[in-house]
């Protein structure tokens, strides 16, 4: 360090330092996940804490998830109808809507909304709990914050996001039904029968649910990690909240591509 560095050297050093930083963050994130997994049994036993978190992450996300599901389904079938009607295949609008929702849009849009609604709240809450020394106080009261604070939130996210996405999908299909059958006059029988003949339980529904569980783990880990590592100032907490939304969104889209290429190849 005593020797003055050339521009290229400083650039290289900066690159290396950033890389090491990111790697260390990944390592800490992984350790956090391990300790959460270890704390799972304790989290399952604390039904009161779990219920509270299911309420906060799940029930409070219902309005946005249900409204978004309805509208996404309506838009999908409207667009689909306009394309399919040219081929005289407008009956296929039902199966098209259901397949797009179950395979892609439900898990992805649902998880994105969840990251914005519940993930950011989780980060902010934990960041504030740290900055107001509540986490330290728990430790001093001989209560493990991993078991008491982090694990119930983690478990609640894994339970609620798949359920929210199922409701998103169901409402999306209903929205598609409203637009194509009630409004555009597609035959109801053809709408449903095309759907059931095209949508496969294992391939489409179960794979979509696997996706949503993966996204739930991803969002929960990122949100908790950012909360735990937030700089305990108001600026630190707010930028950690932003990072939660940005990192989760990118993570969701990236993992979606990977999972899709494995599942629907």
């Amino acid at each position: 360090m005593s020797r003055p560095l050339s521009g290229a050297q400083t650039l290289l050093q900066g690159l290396g330092a950033t890389l090491l930083d990111k790697l260390a963050a990944f390592g800490r994130g992984f350790l956090l996940m391990l300790s959460l997994v270890v704390a799972m049994p304790a989290a399952v036993l604390r039904v009161d804490l779990l219920f509270k978190q299911v309420y906060v992450t799940g029930v409070l996300s219902l309005p946005i998830i249900l409204t978004a599901g309805l509208f996404v389904g309506m838009v999908l079938s409207l667009q689909g109808y306009n394309i399919l009607v040219d081929f005289n295949a407008e009956e296929a609008v039902g199966s098209m809507t259901a397949l797009s929702l179950l395979r892609e849009l439900g898990p992805v849009v649902g998880a994105l909304l969840f990251a914005g609604r519940a993930g950011s709240a989780m980060t902010a809450e934990i960041g504030l709990m740290r900055s107001t020394e509540q986490i330290s106080a728990l430790e001093m009261m001989a209560i493990d914050p991993i078991k008491f604070v982090y694990a119930p939130r983690f478990l609640a996210a894994i339970i609620t996001l798949p359920l929210l996405i199922i409701m998103f999908n169901a409402l999306g299909v209903f929205g598609g039904y409203l637009v194509s059958v009630s409004w555009l006059g597609v035959d109801a029988g053809a709408f449903w029968s095309q759907m059931t003949s095209q949508v496969d339980w294992n391939e489409d529904v179960v794979n979509g649910m696997i996706k949503s569980v993966v996204f739930a783990v991803l969002v929960a880990i990122i949100a908790l990690f950012q909360g735990v590592n937030a700089i305990p100032t108001s600026e630190g907490v707010s930028s950690a909240t932003t990072r939660t939304v940005v990192h989760s969104s990118l993570g969701i889209l990236g993992f979606d591509f990977i999972l899709t290429s494995i599942m629907f190849n």
Partner: peptide, 26 residues
């Protein structure tokens, strides 16, 4: 730590519980 009590600078009360529940918490 069960033999220790600590009073933090900010109080560090759990913000989602009322006064009674905070004291009852431990």
């Amino acid at each position: 730590r069960r033999k220790m009590g600590m009073l933090f600078q900010s109080g560090a009360l759990l913000t989602d519980l009322n006064v009674f529940d905070n004291v009852a918490f431990p």
